[in-house]
């Protein structure tokens, strides 16, 4: 960034200073606070759902994870489809982007958006446009971690 700025001519540097002065700053502290509480609230709902499955169905603490995630995804699907989720997202920021609901929203909103281009080339191709990187780098980093773990456990085990 600093390197790039040095290449700018003095006129551009001068303007960028003026622009910076007028630019509305992101309210980082309030954003963090909102994200913390909304994100926490999403997890609280997740915990309630999980407890519900353990109490009323034949699930244990280990196995209740999958139906809990599925339920949260279904709720997100409705909130996205009815046009509510983007408003919550604008308020909560990372609070609704980081939990599994954010991932679901990224997939579902892309699927809805590209319906006009057809089910194969529209929905099929573009559904993972936003969520794709999460899968690619999620799988890749899991592979690296697994590799490190295997090497270490082999080394320490012998």
């Amino acid at each position: 960034m600093t390197n790039k700025k040095k290449k700018l001519n003095p006129k551009a540097q001068h303007y960028q200073a003026i622009q910076k002065k007028n630019e509305t700053k992101r309210p980082i502290f309030t954003n963090c606070l909102k994200a913390f509480f909304v994100g926490g609230f999403v997890c609280f709902i997740g915990q309630l759902i999980s407890t519900f499955y353990i109490y009323f169905f034949d699930f244990t603490e280990q196995t209740a994870g999958n139906p809990t995630v599925a339920t949260l995804i279904i709720i997100t699907m409705f909130l996205t489809g009815f046009g509510v989720y983007d408003h919550i997202g604008q308020f909560a920021g990372a609070g609704t982007a980081v939990p599994v609901t954010g991932f679901a929203n990224a997939v579902i909103s892309s699927a809805i958006e590209h319906r006009t281009e057809g089910y194969i080339l529209g929905v099929g191709t573009n559904m993972l446009k936003l969520a794709g990187p999460v899968i690619v780098y999620g799988v890749f980093s899991a592979f690296i971690i697994a590799l490190i773990k295997t090497i270490f456990s082999q080394f320490l085990g012998s």
Binding site: T24, P27, Y85, A92, G93, N105, A106, I112, E113
Partner: peptide, 17 residues
Amino acid sequence: ERQFRYPTEYGGQKPPT
């Protein structure tokens, strides 16, 4: 929105700018 930014129903947070 869909051409220049994100899908309309995507819950990304937009900055005040």
